Simulated scan of single mutants.
Amino acid sequence: MGGQGKPLILLHGLAGSSRELIPTAEALRADFRVILLDQRGHGQSTRRPADLSREAFVDDVVHLMQTRFPGERCVLIGQSMGAHTVFLTAAARPDLVDRLVMLEGHAAGNEDPASVAQIGKFFAAWPTPFEDEAAARRYLGDETIAGAWIADLEPTGNGLQPRFDADVMEQVITAVHKPRWAEWESLEVPALAVFAKDGMFAHQDKDELIRRRPETTRIDLQAGSHDAHLDAFDEWINALRQWLNPRARMPSRRPGRLNVDC
Results as ranks from 00 to 15, higher is better:
residue 3 G to K: 08
residue 10 L to A: 12
residue 11 L to F: 10
residue 12 H to P: 13
residue 14 L to P: 04
residue 15 A to C: 10
residue 17 S to V: 06
residue 18 S to W: 09
residue 19 R to E: 13
residue 22 I to G: 02
residue 22 I to R: 06
residue 22 I to V: 15
residue 24 T to A: 12
residue 25 A to G: 15
residue 38 D to Y: 09
residue 40 R to L: 14
residue 41 G to C: 13
residue 47 R to K: 13
residue 49 P to G: 11
residue 51 D to T: 09
residue 53 S to M: 04
residue 58 V to P: 03
residue 61 V to Q: 12
residue 61 V to T: 15
residue 62 V to R: 12
residue 65 M to Q: 09
residue 68 R to C: 11
residue 75 V to S: 03
residue 95 D to C: 15
residue 104 E to P: 08
residue 105 G to F: 03
residue 113 P to Q: 07
residue 117 A to P: 05
residue 123 F to L: 08
residue 131 E to P: 00
residue 132 D to Q: 05
residue 145 I to R: 04
residue 146 A to H: 08
residue 156 T to E: 09
residue 161 Q to D: 06
residue 165 D to M: 12
residue 165 D to W: 11
residue 166 A to L: 01
residue 167 D to V: 12
residue 170 E to G: 01
residue 171 Q to Y: 08
residue 173 I to R: 01
residue 178 K to A: 14
residue 181 W to D: 07
residue 184 W to T: 02
residue 186 S to H: 11
residue 190 P to T: 13
residue 191 A to W: 01
residue 200 M to V: 15
residue 206 K to V: 15
residue 216 T to P: 08
residue 217 T to D: 03
residue 217 T to F: 01
residue 222 Q to N: 13
residue 223 A to H: 05
residue 232 A to M: 01
residue 241 R to C: 01
residue 241 R to A: 02
residue 242 Q to N: 12
residue 247 R to F: 02
residue 248 A to P: 01
residue 249 R to Q: 03
residue 249 R to S: 03
residue 254 R to N: 06
residue 261 D to W: 06
residue 261 D to Q: 14
